[in-house]
Simulated scan of single mutants.
Amino acid sequence: MIFQPLTAGLLALCSSTFTSASVIPPLANQGVLNYADHANTAHDIDADSVTRPSWFTSTLMARRLLALSPNGVISTTFPSQIPAWSRTPAEVAGLPIGLREYIADCDGILPEYLSHGDNGDPTILALRIATTFRNTAAGSNLSLEIDWWDHLSEAGAVYPGLPPSPAALPRITLFGYLDPLPELSGIAAVNLEKCFLRSHPDAKYWLPGTPGSPHASFWARLVVTQVYWIGGFGDVQQIGWMNVTEWKGIRRDGSLAGVGDGRGWEDVRLPGEKHPAHGAL
């Protein structure tokens, strides 16, 4: 069967059945989007030179995406019954809502008794008044979506024959639960604040315990239980559920014994990145 180029590309992009255990046909056996007439010739890519990265390399890229991302969209659901005193419309009971929140990859600087070993559980500065955290307090599940779409101008065209396209850039959704951190003091609090404020200097005004803060806040982390990855278009990138053991075993400069080939997320680059990585982490 021969697909029209656009149909084949969309099927590759939208499929939700690919997993690390799936049998994915090689690039030569798949339809390739053909937008040559509209391509940015400065970024033309030879389709024959494009190969799909391994699942472990993709997981390294996903961990790097987390490490470089200052925010993401957290999705929760409203309670099935909205309290009568609430200003939230009763009609949204049980419905999902996605809101962008500040995050940072700071677990590795937490005290040893508290850290999860820098295993990819993002740190979140939670405002008690915010809808996201009111929903989790009421028992909602949550997921966190982060992506590389803001880097389109740097990445340029990354797919053969296609002009620069956000859909060709990676994104992940992390599933799990919110784990509030205990109140920190001394050097532990200083280290966490320094790590988080590196990405969010404005957040110093509503850090936990800040005098005169407009909002009450607390530190929390998303404990990751599942990871869904879309590396780009499915004929040149992996799409599907990642190996959570590999996700949790990757570190910046290497991986735990028995995890992948020993590389860390510093050994890969996302589309458009230069060597070394953007900024100091």
Rank of each mutant, 00 (worst) to 15 (best):
M1Q: 04
I2G: 01
L6Q: 05
L6D: 02
L11C: 15
L13F: 05
C14W: 01
C14A: 05
T19Y: 01
S20T: 15
A21W: 11
I24D: 00
I24H: 00
P26C: 12
L27A: 08
L27S: 06
N29M: 05
N34Y: 03
Y35G: 13
H43M: 10
D44P: 07
I45V: 15
D48N: 10
S49G: 01
T51V: 15
R52T: 06
P53Q: 08
W55K: 13
F56E: 10
A62M: 11
L65V: 03
L66N: 02
L68E: 11
S75K: 06
T76I: 14
Q81H: 07
Q81P: 01
I82K: 05
P83C: 12
T88I: 15
A90Q: 09
E91C: 08
E91Q: 11
G94W: 06
L95T: 13
I97D: 02
G98R: 08
R100K: 01
A104P: 07
A104V: 11
C106V: 09
C106W: 04
H116Q: 11
H116Y: 04
H116W: 02
D118G: 14
L125H: 04
L127D: 11
L127M: 13
R128A: 11
A130H: 11
A130K: 05
T132K: 02
A138S: 13
A138G: 07
L142W: 09
L142C: 15
E145M: 14
D147R: 01
W149D: 09
D150W: 00
D150K: 02
A155Y: 00
A157S: 05
Y159H: 13
P160Q: 12
L162W: 05
P164T: 13
P164W: 04
A168P: 00
I172F: 03
T173S: 12
L174D: 07
F175S: 06
Y177G: 10
Y177N: 12
L178S: 03
P180G: 09
P180E: 09
L181Q: 05
L184E: 06
L184M: 10
S185K: 15
G186K: 07
G186P: 05
A188P: 00
L192S: 02
F196D: 04
R198H: 03
P201E: 07
W206I: 13
P208W: 11
G209L: 05
G212T: 11
H215G: 12
H215Q: 12
S217D: 05
R221S: 05
V223S: 08
V224I: 04
T225W: 15
W229Y: 12
I230M: 08
G231Q: 03
G231S: 06
G232L: 06
F233I: 15
F233H: 14
I239D: 00
G240P: 13
G240Q: 13
W241A: 12
W241M: 12
V244D: 01
T245V: 13
E246Q: 10
E246P: 01
G249H: 03
R252T: 08
D253W: 02
S255F: 02
G262V: 08
V268A: 05
R269S: 14
G272F: 04
K274F: 09
P276S: 04
A277V: 09
L281V: 10
